[in-house]
Simulated scan of single mutants.
Amino acid sequence: MSSSRPHHRRTLAAAAAAAVLAAALTACGTSGTGHGMAGMDHGATASAGASAAPSQLMAGMDPMPGMGSNGLSDNQAGYRLTATDTAAPAGKAVDYRFAITGPDGRPVTDFAVEQTKRMHFYAIRGDLTGFQHLHPTMASDGTWTAPLTALTPGTWRLYTSFTPDSGDGKGNSLVLSRTVTVAGAAPSEQLPPASATAVVDGYTITVKGSPMANMAHEMTISVAKDGKPVTDLQPYLDTYAHLTAFHSGDAAIAHLHPETTVNGDHGGPDLTFHAEFPQSGNWRLFLQFQTGGRLHTASLTLEVG
């Protein structure tokens, strides 16, 4: 009998350890709204206007702690992007109407001004082509109208970027999005390979440094023309350049805020941004800057480690 007691104690200890492990795993899988990993919210549901395409797979996930929203959900922090249109015509301009409702379910009409606008609106096709950056107008009832230029066939994601200026979300920058489908044959374009440089309208832009995912850092972009540094950039949206980026895997949006001080019509050649990329992989960057009263939009694929 004495020789069997150690074995019996080991059996009880193993069973107890297994029970503790099972309880821990159960708690991880069921706490809150179903967080499988810290900072990820799998409990959100897709909107009626959302697509079942791969770009929707990350919808509803909260970013890593300390990072901004990835913009792939139509709701966040009690605020919701509402719209009735889930489709748009091909090949012609169309007005997209929407509203932002607050935690009380009512349309929000009080928005803070950021980079001279109360609302920034972006449209991008599923293959990250056809980029549009618009500034919609709001009616007194809180209905916004974004004048989209002609869309090509495919699934488009439409983003709203804003900051409530009253209520529970006052001062919090939010990005909400929905999708619309444009009927017709939609051949997908191949994403250009990653490169630190791009050329547009004779200007060469160069991204300096190697950004890392889930890390807030400064990112510098330089502008040159004919091999010489450009120093005549004009203010655009109260800065010398506006930068937007979308992830090639799911169209998540990165938060890139200008830090360069504006001082007349002689900006450049280096432009500094506060960058937060919520995940690694290839990102499609769109840099908008102005010279001689003309707006230029450069695009490149950036690899984020």
Rank of each mutant, 00 (worst) to 15 (best):
Q115L: 12
V108G: 01
D41F: 08
Y79W: 12
V304Q: 07
R125F: 01
T82L: 13
V207E: 08
A16I: 11
T244R: 13
Y240F: 11
I100L: 12
T220K: 06
L72P: 01
Y203G: 02
V230E: 06
A252K: 09
T239R: 10
G29D: 09
T101K: 12
P193Q: 15
L176R: 06
H255S: 15
P187H: 10
N214D: 13
I205E: 04
T145F: 10
A194S: 10
D232K: 02
V207G: 03
R97Y: 08
T297G: 02
L271T: 00
F162T: 07
G102V: 01
L148C: 07
A90K: 10
A139H: 04
G167K: 04
L233G: 00
D168H: 14
Q56S: 15
G281F: 10
G249Q: 14
G60Y: 04
I124M: 08
Y96K: 05
Y240M: 02
A18Q: 05
Q190T: 15
G268T: 01
L128P: 01
A52N: 15
P258S: 04
V200M: 11
D226A: 13
L128I: 14
S4A: 12
G167W: 06
A93N: 11
L148G: 05
A52T: 15
L21K: 03
T260Y: 00
S173C: 03
M219E: 06
I100S: 05
M37W: 14
M64Q: 11
S188V: 12
G78K: 15
D74K: 02
T30L: 11
Y96A: 04
F289W: 06
A194C: 09
T152Y: 01
D250G: 02
T116D: 10
S195Q: 07
G34Y: 08
G227L: 03
H42K: 10
L148R: 03
H274S: 15
G264H: 06
R9D: 13
G281M: 09
T45Y: 11
A216R: 14
P65M: 02
G49D: 07
T129V: 12
T155A: 06
L233N: 00
L302D: 06
T143C: 01
T116N: 09
S248C: 12
T152K: 11
S140D: 14
P278C: 07
P211D: 05
M58P: 07
R125P: 02
L256E: 04
G227F: 04
R106V: 12
L176Q: 08
D104V: 05
M61W: 11
M138P: 02
M119Y: 05
Y236P: 06
S55H: 05
V223W: 00
L21A: 14
D41H: 14
G305Q: 14
N70A: 11
V175N: 13
P54R: 06
A15K: 07
T30R: 01
L285S: 00
G39H: 07
V230A: 02
A24F: 10
P229G: 08
T30Q: 00
Q132K: 08
S210P: 05
V175P: 08
D41P: 04
T260P: 00
Q76W: 09
A185V: 14
F273V: 05
I221M: 03
D127Y: 02
A83C: 13
T84W: 07
S4R: 11
L57M: 11
A194V: 08
A224M: 03
D141M: 12
G305N: 13
A24H: 04
L151F: 06
